[in-house]
Amino acid sequence: MANDPDPRGRLIGALDQVAANPEIQRVREVAFAALHLEPGQRILDAGAGTGEVARLLATRLCGSGAIVALDASAAAIAAAVARDEGTSVRYTQGDVTALDFPDRWFDAVRCERVLQHLAEPDVAVAELARVTRAGGRVCLVDTDWESVAVDGLPRPLVARVREHLLATVVGQHLDMGRTLRRRLLGAGLREVSAVPVALYFPDPLAAAAVLPMVNPMVPADTGLIPDDLREDWFGALGEAGERGDFLATLTMWVATATV
């Protein structure tokens, strides 16, 4: 964002809000179960953000094994290191499309909400498969932004905001979530499964962390809401919240495969 006085703080704050959201935590539980993790394993969390998932993995595996938390953002990695209180997690900055690890190095890898932003997501999938041992598991978690739906607001207003969001703002691959299964198959992996997880938000506050277009704290210059609709949009959101008839849904996908 141009002239942002605190881009690092804004990034970390956004990551924290998403991580704390109960619906995101529910998706992560589905992903944990799909990985079939065991103590002593070597695990990569690619796109780890501030490392909360990697630290949780270290706790669940009783501190055994070796967990690597990788992220492209130096600010996120710095925050992750500062928050670690003696876990076994190793933090590193890196590119998921060019991983600096040997072939077959990890027992399991996970990658959450990263591929939707990449110009070449299949290169990243191939890299994740490359660094996973034969018989190991690869778990991808991502969003189907085209599934977003809102109720409780005027339909024409929702349609215009949704059209603008999908056309101009959200990541490079709006359909990434529902393409994960195909991408894993294309990478030659086996035992591929894909589970849709419908996120449910019964009020605007609950939705704000995951659906930034309903968050009034997101600055206008992000372009999430057209300037001529911003007042009407947030006014309608407030009214729906007060009436109690607001609803928003979004589908995320958890796709897992064996190398």
Results as ranks from 00 to 15, higher is better:
Leu115Ala: 13
Ile77Thr: 09
Met176Val: 04
Val210His: 01
Gly47Asn: 12
Met217Tyr: 13
Leu128Glu: 12
Leu166Ala: 13
Ala98Leu: 11
Thr249Ile: 07
Ala46Lys: 01
Ala187Ile: 15
Val81Trp: 02
Leu37Tyr: 05
Arg90Cys: 04
Pro7Met: 04
Gln172Leu: 15
Met252Asp: 14
His117Gln: 11
Arg230Tyr: 08
Arg8Ile: 14
Leu229Val: 09
Asp232Cys: 01
Val259Gly: 05
Ala82Phe: 10
Gly171Asp: 14
Arg243Ala: 14
Thr168Ala: 11
Asp144Gly: 06
Pro39Glu: 01
Leu237Cys: 14
Leu247Ser: 05
Leu229Asp: 09
Val170Tyr: 09
Ala46Glu: 00
Asp84Glu: 02
Gly94His: 08
Ser73Ile: 03
Leu165Trp: 15
Arg26Thr: 08
Gln93Asn: 02
Pro154His: 10
Ala255Arg: 05
Glu29Met: 04
Leu115His: 07
Phe201Asp: 07
Leu184Glu: 01
Arg83Tyr: 00
Ser193Thr: 15
Gly86Val: 10
Val125Pro: 03
Asp107Ala: 12
Gln93Cys: 07
Gly177Ala: 11
Pro121Tyr: 07
Thr132Asp: 11
Ala209His: 05
Ala248Gln: 03
Thr168Asn: 15
Val161Phe: 06
Thr87His: 08
Trp105Cys: 10
Val210Ser: 07
Ala119Ser: 04
Pro39Ala: 01
Arg10Ala: 07
Glu112Trp: 05
Pro202Tyr: 14
Val170Glu: 09
Val81Gly: 03
Gln172Glu: 13
Ala129Arg: 15
Ala129Val: 15
Arg183Ile: 00
Arg162Tyr: 09
Asp122Gly: 05
Ile12Trp: 00
Asn215Thr: 07
Ala78Gln: 13
Thr222Phe: 13
Arg10Trp: 00
Cys62His: 12
Cys139Lys: 05
Glu127Met: 04
Ile77His: 05
Arg190Asp: 11
Leu70Ser: 00
Asp122Asn: 14
Asp100Met: 10
Val68His: 05
Gln17Lys: 14
Leu250Ile: 02
Glu239Pro: 02
Ala206Thr: 09
Gly188Asp: 12
Leu205Ala: 15
Pro121Ser: 11
Arg10Asp: 03
Ala257Asn: 07
Gly47Ala: 13
Arg243Cys: 06
Thr132Val: 15
Asn3Lys: 09
Val109Ile: 08
Ala66Trp: 00
Ala257Lys: 04
Ile67Asn: 00
Arg155Asp: 15
Arg113Glu: 06
Arg160Trp: 05
Val96Tyr: 02
Ile77Arg: 04
Asn215Val: 05
Asp232Trp: 05
Val161Asp: 05
Arg178Cys: 03
Gly9Ala: 11
Thr97Asn: 02
Leu128Trp: 11
Val18Phe: 04
Glu120Arg: 13
Glu239Gln: 14
Asp232Thr: 12
Arg160Met: 09
Glu23Val: 03
Gln116Met: 14
Glu231Leu: 13
Asp84Tyr: 02
Thr92Trp: 00
Asp71Ala: 05
Leu189Lys: 08
